[in-house]
Amino acid sequence: MDFFSTLVFLLDSTIRVSVPLLLAALAGLYSERSGVFDIGLEGKMLGGAFAAGAAAAVTGSPWIGLSAAVAIAVFLSLVHGFASITHRGNQIVSGVAINFIAAGSTIILGQAWFSQGGRTPLLGGDARFGAIQLPFAGSLSDVPIIGELYSDLLSGHSLIVYIAFLLVPFTWWVLFRTRFGLRLRAVGENPAAVDTAGISVAWLRYRALICTGILTGLAGTYLALSQNAGFVKDMTAGRGYIALAALIFAKWRPVPVMFACLLFGFLDAFAIRIQGTALPLLGQLPVQFMQALPYILTVILLAGFIGRAEPPRAGGIPYVKER
């Protein structure tokens, strides 16, 4: 059973690593499906993580931390909207700007407020979202396989992990079963059709960006209050970009997004696990190769060698009424 335990352990860490990717990728899905490209996921997640860490450190409440994270991430989302929806600026440029603003200001403000070199103070258990034991997890852990899966893999994660995975069917439902979702998909493909149907294109896209803000805030909160005990500078470490890659990899669809994030998370967890050990057939893989693999896979996908990733048609183009 040693192999099985290793596998469960590996999958367990896959889940932990995947969650911030999943939240950020779902966040990006709302924005990009509405026709607003968002390479600022990284910055919003980082801003959210900082706000969560700072607010939780000051108040001792993870819920206030979460609220602060969502508020900051939504604010950054609205800045993106102001530039790219209201003023029809370049969406890529705006996203890049937000990433820098977040990267710089989290360190500056962190240093100014807490004087710990850009960190927020270490949080105690009460200020974090800790592990939740699902019912009977303890008593079932001795049951072979099923029990082990239940208690070690499914149980024992923080609340945000469960929320993240519930958000997958929820997002699907919103997108394909609600009025908002119908309009969101429409505005990402043909904003003029939405406009002439009497729906405000700008307000619809702003609402999509608010959803993006909320989810990136949640992702940041997970990093600062669940995976770690406080904010550390640059703690997103490129996850926003991997999430973007996962979103493209999944062709902007909610359920495939989950699998893409789990895949990328698995690669990450696997890389850590096999560090320094030789694999059968492959020999010893450099850890850097494993780290680069999500990016390499995404490039191969973008190249069209494994199916075509076709973005929403109106993506990246500011909406101007036809003259």
């Binding site: 119908l182 309009r183 998909r185 429409a186 493909e189 043909n190 003029a192 059709a193 939405v194 406009d195 002439t196 149907a197 009497g198 729906i199 048609r313």
Partner: peptide, 15 residues
């Protein structure tokens, strides 16, 4: 003013 990848019905109820 139609959404190319929507069905006729979806296009009609939009809005």
């Amino acid at each position: 003013m139609l959404v190319h990848n929507f069905t006729v019905l979806e296009n009609i109820i939009l809005g």
